[in-house]
Design a protein around this nucleic acid. Structure first.
Lengths: 236, 236
DNA sequence: CCTTAATTGTGTAATTATGACGCAAAACTA
DNA sequence: TAGTTTTGCGTCATAATTACACAATTAAGG
């Protein structure tokens, strides 16, 4: 590759000005009732002490997806199976440090895998309906992530990344309701899920304060099939 | 805004190396039978003489959307109503000039608005099934654009941007078939379109080589409603 | 031990959407 | 006037969606 910069004593010199590139991750978790988002407390200026999305600057030897993974691991020690790119944010004044363009991703993780803030900064889950004031334009990014998630829920089997290996039908339904923001009829919901073939009953039950619910697992074969056919318009 | 660079005699100096940012546009057009893509012939190295997507480098006073619009106008004199961002491409070796990250958009334009190549380079429509060899990773970008278009066709009333004000039902159907790559039954297709409320018949007819077809327009009210509700999962 | 509260499992009927298909009508050609 | 092409309009069977009701299981309280 031809060198497109000149190394100087103080840094790197380019013929034309360049914006910096960052990645930011909206991490969704589910606590059984509400959708949550993982935020980190900023340890440095700007917005020191504010809550923000995990993310950081792109290095020269990585793609944006790799950058998002790396930053996420560094700041939250999370390593999600999959991340989904959903938008680029490039307003001129979105970062007080200068011109920064960010590529935004979302990912889904099980809430049981909680965080040990690897960096100095704290990391915490916040319910989506009750977020603290956020740094930069991160509120706007989260709003877009929600739209992307709603859109993708029907075409990708992402719901299962948020639940444990085994889950009850009411749990799954609450998840769908939390994401889509609307209510479903219990009976019709179960019927549709069963008909789609992505869940299989595992006959086991658990003991709770009321009638125990049957537990399900998702069907990895159907899971894979849907991932490949996600443009076929089949809803589930 | 705090300055994040140092102006030198030869250019702009940054503490850490930075990738350059470009935008690229996949412009779809419809000739009544096939889906087409607008390509420009590169006038300079690298890939001089090759066909490529219109696009170029981000300036410091514009957002990526504005960059895409500007480059598109400069290179093809097109000014589409709307562009849709669908992906970021950041492979390390995708551009021989160095590290370049591109933000990709697609847009839909009526084929009647043809091009006067404003720049030195030529600009031409190519049927999607018969593209020439392309510069950079532009083939991959086009493939992704097709997937995004297929996905969005059901949730956004984009089909109408590709057709004239008035269009016959067979024309609309051919467009859907060209995009989705599958066949529909004439009668069911019309039934569904009418039921969705986005088309209104305009009783007029035209004179052709066979039975004249009724002409339709799209319904701007439904159009607007759908744009707002595009996450509700209603298909059309 | 029986009742109540909470929650889950299961079934059925009405409505709506989808997919397959047939036939007649309008323009052009011969 | 007959043949060809292409369109308009309709019907029927099947599949998907929605609305709705009652019985079963556990824990808690008298």
């Amino acid at each position: 590759m031809k060198e497109d910069y000149k190394k100087t004593d103080d840094g790197y010199e380019y013929k034309y000005p360049r914006a910096a590139i960052t990645t930011d991750c909206v991490i969704f978790g589910f606590d059984g009732r509400y959708l949550n988002i993982l935020l980190v407390e900023r340890g440095i200026e700007p917005f020191k002490g504010s809550w923000a999305l995990p993310g950081g600057f792109l290095k020269m030897d990585e793609r944006v997806e790799e950058c998002a993974f790396r930053e996420l691991k560094e700041e939250t020690s999370l390593e999600p199976e999959q991340i989904e790119q959903f938008g680029v944010f490039s307003s001129l004044d979105r970062d007080p440090r200068g011109r920064v363009v960010t590529v935004a991703f979302y990912a889904l993780v099980k809430r049981t895998h909680v965080i040990g803030g690897d960096d100095a900064n704290d990391a915490r889950w916040f319910p989506i309906e009750d977020l603290p004031p956020l740094a930069f334009d991160h509120k706007e990014i989260i709003d877009e992530a929600m739209l992307a998630l709603k859109r993708d829920l029907h075409h990708q089997p992402i719901g299962f990344m948020l639940l444990d290996e085994q889950f009850s039908m009411p749990e799954l339904q609450r998840l769908y309701e939390a994401i889509l923001g609307r209510h479903f009829d219990r009976r019709n919901f179960q019927k549709k899920m069963m008909a789609s073939g992505i869940v299989t009953p595992t006959v086991y039950s658990e003991s709770t304060g009321h009638r125990p619910s049957k537990l399900f697992t998702f069907n990895p074969l159907e899971y894979k099939k849907m991932k490949e056919e996600n443009t076929n318009g089949k809803e589930f």
